[in-house]
Structures are given as structure tokens and as C-alpha cells.
Nucleic acid binder design. Structure first.
Length: 298
DNA sequence: CACTTGACCTGTCCGC
DNA sequence: TGCGGACAGGTCAAGT
């Protein structure tokens, strides 16, 4: 999916556009994309006003005036695109650009990946697109969000100031036999890290992804945490990474992939030592490493 | 419990 | 050109 920086970018885009808007209609065709859509939609969604847009880990929360929230996970290919409809226009509202990296990936919506469409009273629309259908939208009482199993398990937010080095190290104490990358990807350890930023931060910290947690030193974990936070913040500043499908709330790509040090750079020289970046498989995921900069300490 | 693997889906790319 | 398999930003439910 979109990882923490991508979901945060979408959150920021929606937060400037949808609060205050009133939901008039909701359409969906793939039931698994909106699994608990029932009569609650009529009672708590229609006529509800958007109050706030929040994020926790890789999950978006749209709080409504009915004290319900839309809980949204984009998984691998989800998009959440807001369109201020241009009435009576012959032009599609969103168009392809001329190939600039930040240009739109979206032509016109809805398209065949559109799973849920929210129409606001003013005619504007919020499209939930998801090619692979792994993502979902759920309607949950706002007070019950924290009780969802995922939110009970999920680890701290890496950009939270209260998340210290000591806390970071403590998150790994029960994962001593895991490979460091598998632990980093586990949302119960740290929230929001996915395949791109795991590879990037492990390269930046000089840690081989297959290193067992038990042999990663405290100093290395501190460095990993520092680099991870720097990289996540930079990625937010760049509007996230578009590897393939990801777009922000305006339908535009993120540019962090232009700054990636190892992710999808297999066959190219390491920016630090010129050694050729390799792609291997770790914890079932494609993994990019420089085997000179990232020494495997068993 | 900790840890790994397969399943959920569609689409694209690569080798035969 | 067609076809099979591997692979793709994530998480769960199953296995060991």
C-alpha cells in the first residue's frame, strides 16, 4: 500500500477539502470494499457532515457529525481521490499531464477500479479506487475505532515526539528471532512502515535486512530509528512515493521514488559505495540491498 | 507465544 | 501472438 507518508499525504489533501461537506449519496459495487455497509449507511452516513480527517498507522479516519467514522485502508493499490466536479464542462475534471513526475495518473473518474463513490451535497465526489480489491472502507462508531483489533495491536507512530530511542528498542524485545526487516514491517512493532521505507531505512542505517534482531546492537537500533524518521519525514515532504498506483487526494503522484537510495534500484550502483544494488527475497517480500554497505551479521 | 506461509485480487511483464 | 508463472506499496488466518 501506500505506507505512512503516502497515507499522511492523502490525509492532508482531504483535510483541506472535505471537512464541512455533507454526504448525500454513497455507491459501491464490490461488497468486500465496504464490508459492513448496511442500514447504518442510511442512518449514520447520509446527511452526515465531515468533521475531521485523521490517520493512524496506514489507516485513514474520516470523522462524521453522527459520531461515526469511515475507517479506510488502501492496502496495495487503493486511492482516495477528491473531485470538485466541473459542472457543464466538456473536459474531464482530471486529465493526464505531459509526463512530469508529479502529473496525474488519473484520467477521468469513476474508472473501472472505482469501488466506492461518496457524493457530497454540493456535487463534489470522493472516489475510493482499488485495482486489487484488498482495501476497504468501514463505518464504525468513532468511540469504537480504538477497540478495533488492529488498533489494539498497532505500535507507536514513528514521528510522534514521545516515541524515544528507548521505546523503539523495547518494541523489538519479543522479536529476537525475527529478521530485522520482518520485525520492522510488523505493524505491532512500529506503525506505518512498509516495504519501501523498510528497505530505505535499513540501507541508510547500514543493516542487512536478514540480520536477526538478537544480533542488532542498541546503537544500530538507535541509528535505524533516526534514519527511519528522517526518511519518513522527507517522504511526506515529497508527497510520498509512487511506485505504480499511488496518487494523492488530487490524483497526483508523489516524487519520493526519485530520491530512493535502494528501492527498485537493482542493477544500479549504490550511491554510497558504487557496488551494484541487488534484489533478494526477505520475509516473503522483494528486498533491495547493497551487500557492501549492509553487512549480514548472521 | 513467536514465526512463516498462503490467501485475498487484478494487471503487467518476462520467458518459452 | 499466446500462455504460464512470478511479481506488485499489506494484512490476516492458518499452519509449524
Amino acid at each position: 500500500m501506500p505506507e505512512l507518508p503516502e497515507v499522511e499525504t492523502v490525509r492532508r489533501g482531504l483535510a483541506t477539502r472535505i471537512p464541512g461537506r455533507v454526504i448525500a449519496q454513497v455507491d459501491f459495487d464490490w461488497p468486500k470494499s465496504f464490508p459492513n455497509a448496511t442500514h447504518d449507511v442510511e442512518r449514520f452516513l447520509i446527511q452526515a457532515e465531515v468533521v475531521a480527517v485523521r490517520r493512524r498507522a496506514k489507516v485513514l479516519l474520516i470523522d462524521l457529525s453522527t459520531d461515526y467514522s469511515l475507517v479506510i485502508h488502501l492496502k496495495m493499490t487503493g486511492q482516495l481521490v477528491f473531485v470538485q466536479t466541473a459542472k457543464q464542462s466538456q473536459e474531464p475534471t482530471l486529465r493526464f499531464g505531459a509526463g512530469h513526475p508529479n502529473d496525474s495518473l488519473i484520467n477521468a473518474l469513476p474508472d473501472r477500479s472505482t469501488r466506492v463513490t461518496i457524493t457530497f451535497a454540493d456535487g463534489s465526489k470522493l472516489y475510493f479506487n482499488d485495482q486489487r480489491k484488498f482495501g476497504w472502507v468501514k463505518l464504525v462508531p468513532t468511540v469504537a475505532v480504538a477497540d478495533l483489533p488492529f488498533f489494539q495491536r498497532v505500535g507507536p507512530e514513528p514521528l510522534d515526539e514521545r516515541f524515544t530511542d528507548a521505546v523503539f528498542r523495547s518494541r523489538f524485545v519479543n522479536r529476537k528471532n525475527s529478521m530485522i526487516k520482518a520485525a520492522l514491517l510488523d505493524q505491532a512493532v512500529v506503525a506505518g512502515v512498509g516495504n519501501i521505507y523498510a528497505d530505505e531505512s535499513l540501507w541508510a542505517a547500514g543493516i542487512h535486512p536478514q540480520t536477526r534482531v538478537s544480533v542488532v546492537s542498541d546503537e544500530q537500533l538507535n541509528t535505524l530509528f533516526k534514519r527511519l524518521r528522517e526518511i519518513l519525514q522527507t517522504a511526506i515532504d515529497k508527497g510520498g512515493s509512487t511506485n505504480k498506483n499511488y496518487v494523492n487526494a488530487e490524483g497526483k503522484r508523489g516524487s519520493y521514488m526519485d530520491f530512493a537510495q535502494v528501492f527498485r534500484r537493482e542493477g544500479q550502483p549504490c550511491f554510497r559505495c558504487e557496488n551494484t544494488i541487488k534484489k533478494i527475497k526477505v520475509a516473503g517480500r522483494g528486498t533491495h540491498i547493497c551487500s557492501v554497505c549492509q553487512v549480514h551479521a548472521i
